[in-house]
């Protein structure tokens, strides 16, 4: 199952909202099992690109394929059996328990009036175990903390048993311990379950630390694509983010890390 047939290919894709923002002829190939961080300033097109990859937005030109199959030709339900998404915002207005939320991840596999099968329950238990949330199963989702909720949403996406997992800034509202916890989980799914992961990331240092490949977008174009060493350079970051930075090395892993510089360093001493 995890072979060439589940590579993600975005070829020459264009998209524009009626407001005017555009993605311009984006090309991105993500072979099965890769872990890719999408970077770029606000409004560069990260979320739009993820939505194209998830098939909920359709490119005006070009194509998005999973393996040999164009997403345009698949039913939404068929796409959801292969691609899961952790969106930036997730709220649920009703009193769902944790288990019920995670069970929603089985939606693309349920049919008509049939209830969940034994297998569905096993899968839900499995992902709750995997995310370390098994003890929360009967708690109400809305009563949990932000970090706990994010792990539940992740568990819900994993309950879809996706070959590709897309995440839109999965750590942006979390404190540092939860940020690390979520990224460690993602890395484990990627390594152990061979799930392809594409995540839009806000925090460049975390991205450099956890992702093998970084893709930097700027104004709807791919500006840089490569290993953290190739993408996180002073020159590139200064250009794309128009911020003054200095690049150092992580003391343990030696991946590049960014240090922000104030506009006028001398005024601090």
């Amino acid at each position: 199952m995890h072979s060439k047939t589940s590579d993600l290919l975005i070829s020459d894709a264009c998209f524009s909202y009626t407001g005017g923002f555009t993605l311009n002829h984006i090309n991105l190939f993500v072979p099965n099992g890769q872990m890719v961080g999408l970077l770029g300033p606000n409004g560069c097109g990260k979320t739009t690109l993820l939505k194209l990859a998830a098939g909920v937005l359709v490119p005006s030109e070009g194509d998005v394929r999973i393996g040999e199959m164009s997403l345009k030709k698949l039913l939404r339900r068929e796409v959801a059996r292969q691609i899961a998404v952790v969106p930036q915002e997730f709220n649920i207005p009703f009193a769902y328990t944790v288990e019920e939320v995670v069970m929603l991840g089985r939606t693309p596999f349920l049919k008509g009036l049939n209830g969940e099968s034994k297998r569905d329950h096993q899968i839900v238990s499995g992902v709750l175990e995997l995310t370390g949330m098994a003890g929360f199963r009967n708690r109400y989702f809305n009563e949990l903390s932000g970090g706990e909720r994010q792990k539940i949403v992740l568990a819900m996406a994993l309950a879809q048993e996706p070959v590709i997992l897309l995440l839109d800034e999965p750590t942006s509202h979390l404190d540092i311990s939860h940020q690390i916890e979520i990224l460690e989980l993602l890395r484990r799914f990627n390594r152990e379950k061979k799930v392809t992961i594409v995540a839009a990331m806000h925090d460049l240092n975390l991205a450099a630390l956890y992702f093998d490949r970084l893709v930097l977008l700027d104004r709807g174009l791919v500006f840089a694509d490569g290993s953290p060493d190739e993408v996180i350079t002073g020159e590139i970051i200064r250009k794309v983010f128009s911020a003054k930075v200095e690049i150092t090395r992580h003391p343990k892993t030696s991946v590049p890390q960014i240090v922000l510089l104030p506009d006028n360093p001398s005024s601090f001493s």
Partner: peptide, 19 residues
């Protein structure tokens, strides 16, 4: 089942395979 998916909003429902 589809209404359950709509509980997480239209965008979320689409990710769960709802047309």
């Amino acid at each position: 089942v589809k209404l359950n998916a709509f509980s997480i909003g239209e965008e979320g429902a689409a990710y769960l395979g709802i047309n």
